[in-house]
Design a protein around this nucleic acid. Structure first.
Length: 154
DNA sequence: GCCAACGTTGGC
DNA sequence: GCCAACGTTGGC
C-alpha cells in the first residue's frame, strides 16, 4: 500500500464535505505530475492524508482512501466548467481523476507550522515543493502525522 | 491582498 | 530547445 497527501481548499471541499458524501470523485486536477501519480501509481485502498490548503491554519485534518482506479475527468469537456480544457481530445482524454472515500477525521488538526517543527518530516514533499496538490508521503511520515494527531508522539 | 515559487505556453 | 511572459498555487 502507498500513502498520499491530497490538498483541498476547505471553502471548496472540506473533510466535513467528504464525511457527509462518503465518496467523491477528485475532479479538477490540471497538473501533469499530479495526474501521473493518480494514473500510474495510485491503487485502490491506498491511504490519503487530507490536507486543508488556503485555510486558517493550513494542515492535515483527516484520512481518506483511494476508492477507484483512474478514469476520465468529465469536467475537461464541459465549456461551462471552470476546469474545461479545449485542447483535450475526447478520444484521448488528457485529464483523469480517481474516487476518494472518507475514512476518519483526525482528533485534531496537525498544522503546517507544526509539521515543519519535526525533523522526521523534513523530507516531506509538502515542505519542499509545496505546490503539488497530489503528492506521495512515506509510510513513516504518514504514521508519524497520525500519531501526532492522536497524541501518541510529541 | 501580496508575492514567491513554480508550471505552462508559445515565439523564435 | 530556449526562455520570456504569463498564469496559478498557497502561505502569510
Amino acid at each position: 500500500m502507498r500513502y498520499w497527501l491530497m490538498k483541498s481548499e476547505p471553502d471548496a471541499y472540506s473533510i466535513d464535505d467528504l464525511e457527509r458524501d462518503g465518496t467523491e470523485h477528485w475532479d479538477g486536477i490540471r497538473n501533469y505530475q499530479a495526474r501521473n501519480l493518480m494514473r500510474d501509481e495510485m491503487e485502490i485502498g491506498d491511504r490519503v492524508l487530507f490536507y486543508h490548503s488556503n485555510a486558517k491554519p493550513p494542515g492535515v485534518v483527516g484520512i481518506a482512501e483511494i476508492a477507484s482506479g483512474p478514469y476520465p475527468d468529465h469536467t475537461q469537456f464541459d465549456p461551462e466548467q471552470q476546469y474545461f480544457d479545449p485542447k483535450s481530445d475526447p478520444e484521448n482524454p488528457r485529464w483523469i481523476m480517481v474516487d476518494v472515500s472518507f475514512v476518519e477525521k483526525l482528533p485534531r488538526l496537525v498544522s503546517l507550522h507544526e509539521l515543519k517543527e519535526h525533523p522526521q518530516l523534513a523530507g516531506m514533499v509538502l515542505l519542499n515543493r509545496s505546490r503539488l496538490s497530489v503528492q506521495p508521503v512515506t509510510s513513516d511520515q504518514f504514521a508519524f502525522i497520525v500519531d501526532l494527531a492522536r497524541g501518541a508522539v510529541s
